[in-house]
Amino acid sequence: MVKAGDGYKDIPKGGIILDAGNAKNYKTGGWRTKRPVLDKEKCINCHLCWAFCPDVSILSENGVVSDQIDYDHCKGCGICANECPVNAIEMKKE
């Protein structure tokens, strides 16, 4: 992985990125002013929030929506809360 401050001899030539998908290591959670919180009691597991999330931050494990939202990447847009058909997601101030 290329590190900040690396010199020209240390980094791959031509701007090639060798670690595909490493943006996962870049945290965008700090962009958020409100965080979505999922109420598992209300959730009907429709997965619409999962499908609509721009930041791939609503996680699904074995076909079940998880209440462990990826706050490292969630930017707090609120789409999930807006689209939830049973109001199971609430946007709470950080």
Binding site: A23, K24, Y26, A51, V56, D72, K75, I79
Partner: peptide, 15 residues
């Protein structure tokens, strides 16, 4: 397509 991209909050291109 992973999180950690820098599209705007609420960008339609993400989903």
């Amino acid at each position: 397509f992973t999180g950690g991209h820098r599209l705007c909050s609420g960008c339609g291109a993400g989903p």
